[in-house]
């Protein structure tokens, strides 16, 4: 065979590269292949991640100084957040000035406004944005990965986009690019998942779920809200409880605030009927997502045993499901 001249080499190289680059075009010619909804193949770069230690640090140090749980009741959403956080030790307890903050509400659909209690109360989210900025946050981003509609649409219809932007926060539509395949160390079942990388690297992750009914989880609260940080959540429904706890070992919010101002008592998580909505005017604060979930079952007249995944999470050492002996401060904001 004749040696290749440089020109030939370059030509062949460019040809080859173009052919490779053209594959996405071919891919776009067909309907989305089902392979995409499975967990990505091994070829994706896999990064080891270690769970943040901060939660446990807070747990030990916090027990003396601050209540383990704060339950605030009242009608003014912003005051609920402010008074509740004050009791928790202020936003400064959770962040330093210049911190990069991500707030993760539940904005799962774009079908209804906040009244239908399928999405987190916008005033609660906006109040958190303000408090983070007041505490000197460099940037406060609010995001969720909805299953019912595009991010833009859901952000807008939930009413969250308007209030957050006005409060000085940023609404970030979660880009597929930032979902990175992660190995989950010590996982029982969910050995890897595509998780939004900023959620893992941010200085402060605030988990702001809305309390509502759900056929499989029974109730969707703080732990379940973490599912909005991963791709392909449909695929984890079989053996749901184990998968959810595995996910919670790596996605670890430093602060969880359960929005139970309006709770969706039936036909969740999507809702759509105001008769299913119950006004409870309550917010639950804790650094421990498991404890917050555990307490929230009371609003549905249940005990933590009603939610097997909460017990499983406690068994794995992610937090406390048994609230006996913990300091719970209840405050009434209207009084």
């Amino acid at each position: 065979m004749k040696d290749q001249s440089r020109r030939e080499f370059l030509r062949n190289f460019i040809l080859g590269a173009t052919t490779l680059a053209a594959q996405p075009i071919l891919a776009s010619c067909s309907v989305k292949p089902m392979a995409e909804t499975q967990l990505p193949a091994e070829t994706v770069a896999i990064t080891e991640i270690s769970p943040t230690e901060s939660t446990t640090e807070f747990a030990t140090e916090a027990q003396n100084q601050y209540p383990y749980l704060v339950v605030a009741r009242g009608t003014d959403a912003e005051q609920l957040v402010r008074q509740g956080m004050l009791a928790m030790g202020g936003m400064e307890r959770f962040m330093k000035a210049g911190a990069d903050v991500i707030i993760k509400p539940n904005i799962c659909i774009g079908y209804y406004s906040y009244e239908y209690a399928a999405t987190t109360n916008p005033w609660v989210v906006a109040a958190l944005v303000k408090m983070c900025l007041e505490a000197g946050a460099k940037r406060v981003r609010v995001m969720d990965y909805p299953f019912g509609g595009t991010g833009e649409q859901c952000y807008k219809n939930s009413g969250i986009a308007d209030l957050v932007t006005a409060a000085g926060g940023e609404m970030e539509v979660m880009s597929e690019l930032k979902f990175v395949e992660q190995k989950i160390p010590n996982a029982v079942r969910l050995k890897r998942a595509s998780i939004y990388q900023d959620v893992l690297t941010t200085d402060l992750l605030i988990n702001v779920p809305i309390a509502k009914s759900h056929s499989m989880a029974k109730l969707t609260l703080g732990l379940k809200n973490l599912m909005g940080t991963m791709l392909n959540r449909e695929s984890i429904h079989p053996s749901f409880e184990q998968n959810l706890v595995d996910l919670a070992t790596v996605v670890r919010p430093q602060l969880t605030i359960i929005d139970a101002i309006r709770t969706l008592m039936a036909n969740g998580p999507t809702g759509g009927d105001l008769n299913d909505v119950k006004l409870q005017n309550t917010l639950i604060f804790s650094h421990d997502v498991v404890a917050a979930d555990s307490y929230a079952t009371r609003l549905f007249e249940k005990t933590p045993e009603y939610l097997p995944y909460v017990l499983k999470a406690a068994e794995r050492g992610l937090g406390k499901a048994d609230l006996t002996g913990l300091t719970i401060q209840e405050i009434n904001v209207d009084a």
Partner: peptide, 9 residues
């Protein structure tokens, strides 16, 4: 069932 958007499912 979870994703069904109809108000009463």
């Amino acid at each position: 069932e979870e994703m069904c958007p109809i108000p009463q499912k």
